[in-house]
Design a protein around this nucleic acid. Structure first.
Lengths: 135, 135
DNA sequence: CATACTGTAATAAAATATGTTACAAATTTA
DNA sequence: TAAATTTGTAACATATTTTATTACAGTATG
């Protein structure tokens, strides 16, 4: 999963932030985004692996935030769900006898790396609390 | 086509810049990137629509640059091939009765819009000539 | 012990991206 | 003027990636 992950994850986290005292069920969360609960649970599994949320199994179980929303940045969320932005690479092995084909991917990589630094700097300045408080 | 477009297009343009006096065939270009010539011709059609290249049909035909490579920026190429970057939206219509679901896409849009401004500024500072001269 | 959850695997369906074939139209050159 | 070569484009086929569904074992609650 690439597309969707970030949007689903930030949606989950925003809901958790809005209900800081409750364990929210994947069914409830999925209802807000009109999505299959299994997909929500998959993203929650990812968040748990990063110790961002904790969840409780069994009846009346669910998930709640395990970190301070003021200290969790969108950059961290981005890194947990997207890795990097970019505009694509040459898909097939380009012709190694052509100076352009041989090096194109490396130069694209350099370009995208700078893009990620810029975007990362932007996202680092926004906390989950900031984002959530817009609603 | 979303992914691939930018990478294919900049590859084409770099080759055209390296051979400024020749009409390069889609077959030749495709050979450098190990791609089907039809896909190359599709991107060339896009470039032609934006008056970035001109091409000649028939025997010994092909395509060549129609603009000054020092004045064509990566931002322009980005806009011709990618439109915008972003980290995805809620795919399904979110629940309109939920304050978060109702507004999530708008807030994501705002966030991505700022990302695009930052990336756009970066890409605006790099010309095709700059990029091509790295090879 | 019935109920309501999570966790996860397996599978299916849908969407998107990439690749191929085919051929008409254009131009060159012999 | 005929053969060769190339663009332009449509139609179709395949591959890949995303998203959705089903199923069920495990766990906590009351």
């Amino acid at each position: 999963m690439i597309s969707g992950k970030f949007a689903i994850t930030i949606h989950i986290l925003t809901l958790l932030h809005k209900f800081p005292n409750d364990y929210l069920s994947s069914e409830f969360i999925a209802g807000s985004m009109n999505l299959n609960p299994v997909l929500v649970r998959k993203e929650i599994a990812n968040l748990k692996a990063h110790h961002i949320v904790e969840s409780k199994e069994g009846k009346n179980g669910g998930t709640k935030l395990a970190v301070n929303a003021a200290e969790l940045t969108l950059k961290q969320i981005f890194e947990m769900t997207f890795e990097t932005i970019g505009l694509g690479f040459a898909k097939n092995q380009p012709n190694p006898d052509c100076p352009v084909g041989k090096n194109i991917n490396q130069h694209l990589e350099n370009l995208y790396s700078e893009m990620n630094q810029k975007v990362g700097a932007q996202l680092e300045g926004i906390s989950l609390e900031d984002f959530s408080n817009q609603f």
